[in-house]
Design a protein around this nucleic acid. Structure first.
Lengths: 135, 135
DNA sequence: TATATAGTCTATAGTTTTAATAGGAATTTC
DNA sequence: GAAATTCCTATTAAAACTATAGACTATATA
């Protein structure tokens, strides 16, 4: 299942992508428009900023804004930041690889074999979609 | 993340697929061979049986066995039984569709758009793999 | 038919993750 | 310096996942 964090994060990014001139939009406005708990969204936007996807401005007239053009924001990046590894199992993860405790030999593991394909097909989708493609 | 339930279930199915003449194999043997908590595996095998993937035999010489040939067991079926819906979001699920509470119009939802592609690519993998392909 | 074997079922406990909330600190604008 | 707004940490609440316990049922076979 996709976490609400990711879902909300994607919606917020989409919303911000449509903003004219990248002017800062307040958390409250995004939350209201997208039906999201404001406090929860707050923490999501914060991680998006910390990971270089958003910029922010404090004080009156402040808010969040896209730091790059939607065409330049790959879904691989967004998904990794919000949802974590794209692989469903650490032993097939490109960026977060971990060996399984059980499972003596990866090569012959059926789970490994299947999940490798699933990872590749998901990557294929994420690599071929930028934020602009979702508008 | 793939649940341990699914992981263990897949391993058990793979193990059973290799058994000569489909003779019944005891839970304990599978659990030991695949490093799985026996009690947990017990409940997993039960759901696999209830969903028509395994047969069982009680008493001495009993155990679990594949009820169909590995070539005839599609990963779509296995994944749905063990992991649940293949879609990451109910609003793009074929078998478990649900409308989102938030989200006024599905057509324009960026999450919907992206997750539809992810679902299709995953389905593509699962439909093109039988248990036999994982051996 | 007695006994051991092995699956069946229900309940529950422990752990981890997710979702949401609370409250104040820091910064900017006017 | 007051108001607006993001920043940050901690905590709670709920849900899902993993695992365990124990009694019950069915079968094989000696």
């Amino acid at each position: 299942m996709l976490s609400k964090k990711t879902k909300y994060g994607l919606k917020a990014l989409t919303f911000l992508a449509k903003v004219k001139d990248r002017e800062p939009i307040q958390i409250a406005e995004i939350a209201k428009h997208e039906n999201i708990s404001q406090k929860f969204l707050e923490s999501i936007l914060l991680t998006l900023r910390r990971n270089g996807l958003l910029g922010s401005k404090k004080g009156k007239g402040g808010g969040y804004y896209l730091i790059k053009e939607p065409e330049d924001i790959l879904m691989t990046t967004v998904m990794r930041v919000l949802e974590g590894p794209i692989a469903m199992v650490p032993c097939v993860s490109l960026n977060f690889y971990e060996k399984c405790d059980d499972c003596p030999n990866e090569e012959e593991c059926s789970v490994h074999k299947l999940m490798l394909q699933v990872r590749d097909s998901a990557l294929d989708v994420y690599r071929n979609n930028t934020l602009a493609d979702l508008l």
